[in-house]
């Protein structure tokens, strides 16, 4: 095996940190994003709960957050992070900016997925006497499911990219490993190794996403 210049346990720890950050922030971010995306779809101009005020406010907030690069967002909301998790540094502290970053991103992706559902489906649901909740639960979500899986896949990959920058607030992770050891200590083999690991990660996630999505869609 190639000499990587760092103890293997350090690599395992970095991988664990990345997986921890990605999975927790993805879970929380997805729930928030789904609520926001649904709100956008229902309140937009053609929505069944059309509400210009709610739509415009939410839409603008999402656009504002999405305009801020993650590395800046992370340090910008440090006071909020401290307020929520009690510390400004470490892996857990990175969760707050990661969620703030990924939720609006996923919201846009989810919004598109839900908008892809044929309007006629909603009309059929209304004609059956479905309540608003039932329209979402029995009609919109099942119909958007395949597309939503792909959206989560894209979001996950974006999130892995963001975690690399979380090293700036001492969150660790695979990206941080590559930067501190690979780049700053000129350890090229380690750099190469982490890049390959990340590529494999992303490939696997994308393949899984494609597989499940097409399984749901190709009926």
């Amino acid at each position: 095996m190639m000499e990587l210049g760092v103890p293997f346990s350090k690599i395992v720890l970095a991988a664990q940190q990345t997986i921890y950050m990605v999975s927790i922030s993805l879970a929380i971010g997805s729930v928030l994003a789904m609520m926001m995306a649904m709100t956008l779809v229902l309140t937009n101009d053609n929505g069944i709960l059309k509400n210009k005020y709610v739509y415009t406010v939410l839409n603008t907030v999402i656009n504002i957050i999405r305009s801020i690069p993650f590395i800046i967002l992370m340090v910008f909301i440090l006071p909020l992070t401290k307020e929520i998790v009690g510390t400004r540094v470490g892996t857990t502290a990175a969760l707050v900016p990661l969620v703030v970053f990924i939720a609006p991103y996923l919201t846009r992706l989810f919004e598109n997925s839900i908008l892809e559902v044929d309007k006629g489906i909603v009309e059929a649901a209304q004609a059956m006497g479905a309540s608003y909740f039932e329209i979402v639960w029995y009609f919109l979500l099942p119909e958007a499911y395949g597309s939503l899986i792909l959206s989560v896949t894209i979001g996950t990959i974006g999130l892995i990219g963001a975690t690399a920058m979380a090293g700036a607030i001492g969150a660790g992770g695979v990206g941080d490993l590559a930067l501190t050891y690979g780049y700053e200590r000129l350890n090229f083999p380690l750099m190469l190794f982490t890049v390959i690991v990340l590529i494999i990660f992303v490939q696997i996630i994308q393949s899984f996403g494609n597989y499940f999505s097409s399984k749901v869609r190709n009926h």
């Binding site: 006629g120 006497g129 009609f139 869609r217």
Partner: peptide
């Protein structure tokens, strides 16, 4: 009340409007 009335009125469409994700 409207939802209750709608349950007594069936509707069919030009584009069928079936859920493609369901059997």
């Amino acid at each position: 009340e409207l939802r209750q009335v709608r349950k007594r009125i069936g509707m069919i469409f030009q584009q069928f409007n079936l859920l493609n994700s369901k059997t």
